[in-house]
Amino acid sequence: MSELGAAVMTEIVLPGIVQPDGLEVRTREIPAPGPGQVVLRVEATGVSFAEQQMRLGRYYGQPPFPFVPGYDAVGTVARLGPGADPALAGRRFAVVTKVGSWASHVLVDADALIAVPDGVDPAEAETVVVNGVTARQLLRLAKVRAGQTIVVLGANGGVGSTLVQLAQHDGIKVIGTAAARHHPLLDKLGAIPVDHRDPHLYDRIAALAPGGVDAVFDHLAGDGLKQSWHLIRKGGTLVSYGTAALKDNSASTQAVFLSLFSQLWMWHLSPNGKGARFYNFWAGERRTAAFRARLREDLTAVFALLAEGVLTAQVAATFPLSRAGEALALAESRTVAGKVILVPDPATGTP
């Protein structure tokens, strides 16, 4: 397939450390795919915490400004490069890019594509690309099993709501924290809700699990991390997978992570039978083939659960690509449940 229709693409550029309304909408010629590459016409991409950190220049390893953010995408193969399998043309796939997906078209390696099941809506598929893989790998890292109890902080979020559902599917009891307005959602997903604004939050959780919990999934870090650690029973695991509470910390990103790693490692080595781990989505990225194989296996499994109705996609809101600044502002407001999604602008959505 070589026909793209429009010769130009739209992309959202992060020019520097700006407010969400400082994002720039630009157009340029659609690049030609090289050997083994394809052009993916984007049907849905999402707003994650990573882009929020990138806006502040605080995402570890982000490229220099200006650049196009966008962690992942779902779309249809619109053009093939030399050597790419002709059977890919016109089919829908997901891809994890780390940056570059806030665009109408993205250039990717064909080997990085992961098939989206027929009949699954692109926006719904997008909610579980990185979030679903992260949630599945978090559960595997903590080695929790049926009959055990876990705590999911921020259970209304993109990762959190998916983590709740996967755990429930595995027969694991879930205590989830969220603002009171999101408690009906947690009830619906099968979690026991606790108000994250409650000054006695950790006491409330401890009362629900007097013997301690088998795992806490903490995306916040900060001052609450020690209290998460105290919730863990002997044999349990604290899994830290983000630093949301430190988003506005004045320390360097490297210093923040070094402090976090040091604290977790010290706890992990303590002689109390408890574990403390840090999760990094990109662990093993340098071993490209192995990394992509694990990613494909996990996302394929999550997509199957989505297609079967075991997982319910949590779409917080959708915005056209050109309104990415508004979408980012909404995501940063911490008032929504699920993931904010960007979709093509009506005039350029289908070349």
Score class of each variant (00 low, 15 high):
G5M: 11
I12Y: 13
L14N: 09
L14T: 05
I17D: 11
Q19G: 09
G22M: 08
G22E: 07
I30F: 06
P31I: 02
P33L: 02
P35K: 06
V38S: 07
V42N: 08
E43N: 12
A44S: 12
E51G: 03
Q52H: 15
Q52V: 12
Q53G: 12
G61W: 08
P69R: 11
G75W: 01
R79I: 02
P82N: 10
F93T: 00
T97W: 09
K98G: 05
A103P: 06
A103Y: 07
V106S: 03
V106A: 00
L107A: 03
L107K: 02
V108K: 00
V108G: 01
D109M: 00
V116F: 03
P117C: 01
P117M: 04
G119T: 05
A125D: 01
T127V: 05
V130R: 03
N131P: 08
A135D: 07
Q137C: 04
Q137W: 04
L139A: 11
G147N: 04
T149E: 14
V152H: 13
V152A: 14
A155T: 02
S161E: 09
S161F: 07
L163K: 14
H169W: 15
K173M: 15
A178R: 04
A180D: 13
A180M: 15
A180K: 13
R181H: 15
L185K: 07
L186M: 02
L189H: 06
G190W: 09
G190V: 12
D195I: 04
P199F: 12
G211Y: 09
G212W: 06
V216I: 15
D218A: 02
D218T: 02
G222S: 12
G224H: 14
Q227L: 12
S228E: 15
W229G: 14
G235L: 13
G235A: 11
V239D: 14
G242Y: 12
T243E: 14
A244T: 08
S250I: 03
A251E: 10
T253W: 08
V256G: 05
L258C: 05
S259G: 08
F261N: 10
Q263I: 00
L264N: 07
L264C: 05
S270I: 03
P271E: 02
G275N: 14
W282V: 07
R294C: 03
E297A: 04
E297D: 08
L299K: 00
T300H: 01
V302N: 00
V310W: 09
V310F: 04
T312E: 07
A313C: 03
P320D: 07
R323A: 13
E326P: 01
S333F: 05
S333E: 13
V336Q: 10
A337T: 00
D345Y: 02
P351V: 00
